[in-house]
Design a protein around this nucleic acid. Structure first.
Length: 273
DNA sequence: CAGCGTGTTGAGGA
DNA sequence: TTCCTCAACACGCT
């Protein structure tokens, strides 16, 4: 589900709900979501600490807490947050509940249960999994460095854009949109992409995801931000999900759909040769 | 009923 | 070691 624009929306919406609030109690209804430590360690680490800030590194949500503690949350396919001004009974797939010191509650809901939580301290935050291998997002990417990294890569450029260790924040939707915008065929081996093409791709990815962020992300399938708020960028998607529609650019060919690395890939066979 | 999906990781083969 | 492919995670929807 969420890619960079959607995660940014969640962070923005979640901030005011939690910053300066102390965690007084945590209900863990699905221990599997918590990585590296057991439920007791997780609770002990966080209870009585206060949220100082909510940020994101690419698709990872970073809650900063007092005493140099951090809580990492990755939404994967279907993670969502809901809030309520006081405790309410759980709904289907509510798996984690943070009780805050103003009696409000933050609910983490995840129908597919792929989401992850890690607790970290200042000294291990960026040097251990899962943040240690995360590359820069497109707007911060050094294209020369990236070009050097991919010059011997055989994997299709579309697949490379989804690899968070090369460039981060891009998911399937925005990979499709980026390659359509730059008129580059998603199957081209990464090593055959020219420097100029790569520069275009990175710029386009940054631009598209910034525009999507402005509109609160893309709500296709199930994505919503905090408390079920939908994004609006889905109405502006050019190729993703447009199989068999007439291409919005050339108005001649129909959008094709193939699978690259098992992920649905949409492109115009006429514009992206 | 079968297949698909907005994401990532780890195992295993070459 | 590196590069790459694939299964697995789990559930709702078509």
């Amino acid at each position: 589900m969420p890619e960079l624009p959607e995660v940014r929306s969640v962070v923005k919406d979640l901030g005011p709900k939690v910053v300066n609030r102390k965690i007084v109690k945590i209900d863990v209804l699905h221990p599997k979501l918590i990585k590296e430590v057991n439920v007791e360690e997780f609770k002990n680490f966080l209870i009585n600490e206060t949220f100082l800030d909510v940020n994101n590194l690419a698709k990872h949500i970073i809650f900063s807490l007092t005493n140099d503690k951090y809580l990492l949350s990755h939404l994967r396919m279907s993670g969502k947050y809901f809030t309520h001004y006081k405790y309410r009974s759980t709904t289907k797939h509510d798996y984690l509940i943070f009780h805050l010191d103003d009696n409000s509650c933050i609910y983490y809901n995840d129908s597919r249960q792929f989401g992850t939580f890690h607790i970290k301290t200042k000294d291990t935050l960026y040097t251990t999994k899962p943040l240690d291998k995360v590359a820069k997002i497109p707007s911060e990417t050094n294209v020369k460095e990236l070009f050097n990294k991919i010059k011997n890569k055989n994997i299709p450029i579309k697949q490379l854009l989804l690899d968070q260790s090369f460039v981060s924040g891009i998911g399937n939707i925005y990979a499709n949109e980026t390659l359509f915008a730059t008129q580059i065929n998603p199957l081209i081996p990464s090593k055959n992409i020219t420097f100029e093409q790569l520069e275009k791709i990175i710029k386009a990815a940054a631009k598209i995801m910034d525009q999507a962020t402005e509109l609160g992300g893309s709500s296709i399938d199930t994505y919503t931000s905090v408390d079920g708020v939908k994004g609006q960028f889905q109405d502006f998607l050019q190729v993703h999900g447009h199989f068999n529609d007439v291409c919005k650019r050339c108005k001649k060919a129909k959008i094709n759909k193939i699978f690259i690395n098992k992920r649905g890939t949409y492109y115009c066979p006429n514009c992206q040769k």
